[in-house]
Amino acid sequence: MKDLLHIEQLKTHFSTEAGTVRAVDGVSLHVRAGETVCIVGESGCGKSITAMSVMGLVEGPSGKVVGGAIEFDGRDLLAMKANELRTVRGNDIAMIFQEPMSSLNPVLKIGEQIVEPLMEHRKLSRKEARARAIDLITLVGISRPEQIMDSYPHELSGGMLQRVMIAIAVSCNPKLLIADEPTTALDVTIQAQILDLLRSLKDEGGMSILLITHDLGVVAEMADYVVVMYSGKVVEEGEVVELFNNPKHPYTQGLLKSKPIINQRKDTLYSIPGQVPNPLELTESCYFHDRCQHCMEICRTREPKLKDVGQGQKTACWLYEEEALAHV
């Protein structure tokens, strides 16, 4: 299958007073048509910034894509002019966010916010757009669509608002939906409903999903392919079943170990020791080395490259490099 989204060696850096933060540092990933790819990682590992880079919405002037390539449907997104990229956003690539409560404009009616992209990209008249918006609200499983059209965001619950956000996102039948932690701010029961909705929309419309999450439960439920990020780099990637059954990178192993298992009550839940390194103090090394149980000499001084380890799985760890063994 052809790649719909192709990110190659993406580097997005932020210049701060204390120095340059390499939030995304050489990330490559691919999303094929109809596929769901999950980016997993802790807060601050650069997963959201990767998504914002695709959208061209990295907060300037401090943040900037400084290298790499982003190709979408055969078009180079990074080379596009602002106005050209705007016609892609919300039309071919749509995005939903973590906080549905603050993601909608508090002073505009829900209906107004749904019809906007339809009028902008599909050039529908207000009346046509309104009819389509009512269909969309029904599609995302909200009853009384007419009443919802004339409501304001503060009158709806978080779950309803996330449904509205999804309605806005799928309004122009995008080829790719980027969902940045879409269920993190919601109740567990609502989370399942939202994930179900995303899955059924994907199956019906044939769109691809790039799902960003730190919740491995969500990954297991949604993903076809998983990319694990740590400190701005991809440390492991692979098909979801393979990666869950046979994690290679010590970080992925730690993540899976720290996931609570239903019906199994432990006194203390496992957690990976140590903390995410300060992005300003990183020097060439495996960034995970001071939290890693298998840390070797070479891990402190040289960066491991992402390497094929069979079964379509790739990992960036010296444990699987022959070079490292030669070094010892």
């Binding site: 919405l57 705007r86 919300g90 603050s102 993601s103 404009n105 992209p117 902008e120």
Partner: peptide, 22 residues
């Protein structure tokens, strides 16, 4: 800096609409 401005931009609205409507 608000989230809903980010949403408005993610929808692909023109900067003028983002600024004056939202």
């Amino acid at each position: 800096k608000q989230d809903y401005i980010r949403t408005a931009r993610a929808k692909g609205l023109t900067e003028r609409k983002v600024l004056f409507t939202h």
